[in-house]
Design a protein around this nucleic acid. Structure first.
Lengths: 124, 124
DNA sequence: AGGGTTAAGGAACACTCGTTCTTGACTGAT
DNA sequence: ATCAGTCAAGAACGAGTGTTCCTTAACCCT
């Protein structure tokens, strides 16, 4: 019943990952999301509750996959600017970092990887 | 001649460093700056030209001193969220990183230091 | 004392923000 | 055919944004 959705929820989340990985959370407006994601304002709020809800969904989807070195940007931004002011983000980030520690063989390797990617992002 | 300033420019810049080190650039409003810095709106624009101008002044002042491990936060934020969208920030950051490389003995040590501090900031 | 100049103080600007409301279109089941 | 339920479309909201304007206060120099 009801009118069928004209958008793919997973596709929306993946596009949101790309947007949020590119610039700071506050620099990505709901207008940006609506116009780049192919989802309407109303549906965004219906499905994700808020801009923050979509951000959290995007972050979770992103952190649930294998992180390659080239795709650390959303994690970097989440660590630098969101985790300090959003406890839920901090929790997600912490879990992802522990996984990285295991995959890489220890926190030292994680720190080096993050530091290198952060620098590559800042000074291309 | 003219009415003397009721604020110390250096003090304002140092307070701006603290504010900008705490949260993302867009999260720090001009109202925040005005109310925490002891400088009035008009003077802020007269002296620094814009919010970005004050940010750049704060970043330069901050990068011109010795960076201790506990005070890397503004550099981290600048790298993560400003350098990719502000070429002048990218230039300042690049120079500071080269200095860090020399002080620490190579880019690898810089990467590790930044990665460790980034994590400490994200998951306290 | 009196211009000239600079800063403080605060209202006001046009604009953007995240969010909600209203209206109408489309669907499957009765 | 009708009804309930879901979505699209877009206008509208109040609050907040960075910036500018205008008036008043404080100082130096002649």
């Amino acid at each position: 019943m009801g009118r069928p959705r004209a958008f793919d929820e997973d596709e929306v989340v993946r596009a949101a990952v790309t947007l949020f990985a590119g610039r700071a959370y506050d620099s990505v407006s709901v207008d940006d999301l609506v116009s780049h994601l192919g989802v309407h304002r109303n549906s965004l709020y219906k499905v994700f509750g808020s801009k923050r809800g979509l951000y959290l969904a995007a972050l979770q989807h992103y952190l649930s996959q294998e992180l390659t070195a080239a795709e650390l940007d959303l994690l970097l931004l989440a660590m630098a600017e969101r985790a300090p002011v959003d406890a839920e983000v901090a929790t997600l980030v912490d879990a992802a970092l522990r996984d990285l520690d295991k995959a890489l063989g220890g926190p030292a390797a994680t720190a080096t990887l993050l530091g290198e990617r952060l620098r590559a992002r800042a000074t291309p």
